[in-house]
Amino acid sequence: MFINIAFSIIIGGMVGICNHVEKNGKLIMPYRTKKFFYPGFILEMLMGSFAAVLLVLYAEPDSPVQVGFLSILAGFGGESVIKVIEVLKPGTSGK
């Protein structure tokens, strides 16, 4: 089971990074201003990994192929969670 979790973290994180690059056109590194911290690609990598781990724990796949497939699907799902959070923020136009 721990191997499945490790694979899902890696695969979900890579899909999260790919989504970040597709959305922004480049890899944006984390940076800090005087008031804010912008996580860059790390936020999307963590969301993809987290979603992948949750789905793999819930589905309990039997083979590494199923773990990979579920992790890829969950990595894309992590991106949609970020989009929903951005839409629900007060003061944004919902782009």
Rank of each mutant, 00 (worst) to 15 (best):
residue 1 M to N: 05
residue 1 M to L: 12
residue 3 I to D: 14
residue 4 N to P: 11
residue 6 A to Q: 03
residue 7 F to T: 10
residue 8 S to I: 06
residue 9 I to V: 15
residue 10 I to H: 08
residue 11 I to G: 00
residue 14 M to A: 13
residue 14 M to K: 06
residue 14 M to F: 15
residue 15 V to C: 07
residue 15 V to L: 10
residue 16 G to T: 01
residue 17 I to K: 03
residue 20 H to K: 05
residue 21 V to D: 02
residue 22 E to M: 13
residue 24 N to T: 10
residue 26 K to Y: 15
residue 27 L to P: 06
residue 29 M to W: 12
residue 30 P to N: 05
residue 30 P to H: 08
residue 32 R to C: 04
residue 34 K to R: 10
residue 35 K to E: 12
residue 35 K to M: 04
residue 35 K to Y: 10
residue 38 Y to D: 05
residue 38 Y to L: 02
residue 39 P to G: 02
residue 40 G to P: 03
residue 40 G to C: 02
residue 41 F to D: 03
residue 41 F to P: 08
residue 42 I to G: 03
residue 43 L to F: 01
residue 43 L to D: 06
residue 46 L to C: 15
residue 46 L to I: 13
residue 47 M to V: 13
residue 47 M to W: 13
residue 49 S to A: 15
residue 51 A to K: 06
residue 54 L to I: 12
residue 54 L to S: 09
residue 56 V to D: 03
residue 56 V to W: 08
residue 57 L to N: 11
residue 57 L to Q: 11
residue 60 E to C: 08
residue 60 E to I: 11
residue 61 P to M: 04
residue 62 D to M: 05
residue 64 P to S: 04
residue 64 P to A: 04
residue 66 Q to Y: 12
residue 67 V to Q: 00
residue 67 V to K: 03
residue 68 G to N: 01
residue 69 F to K: 04
residue 73 L to M: 15
residue 76 F to C: 13
residue 76 F to W: 11
residue 78 G to K: 00
residue 78 G to P: 09
residue 81 V to N: 00
residue 86 E to L: 04
residue 89 K to D: 07
residue 90 P to E: 01
residue 90 P to D: 01
residue 93 S to I: 11
residue 93 S to G: 04
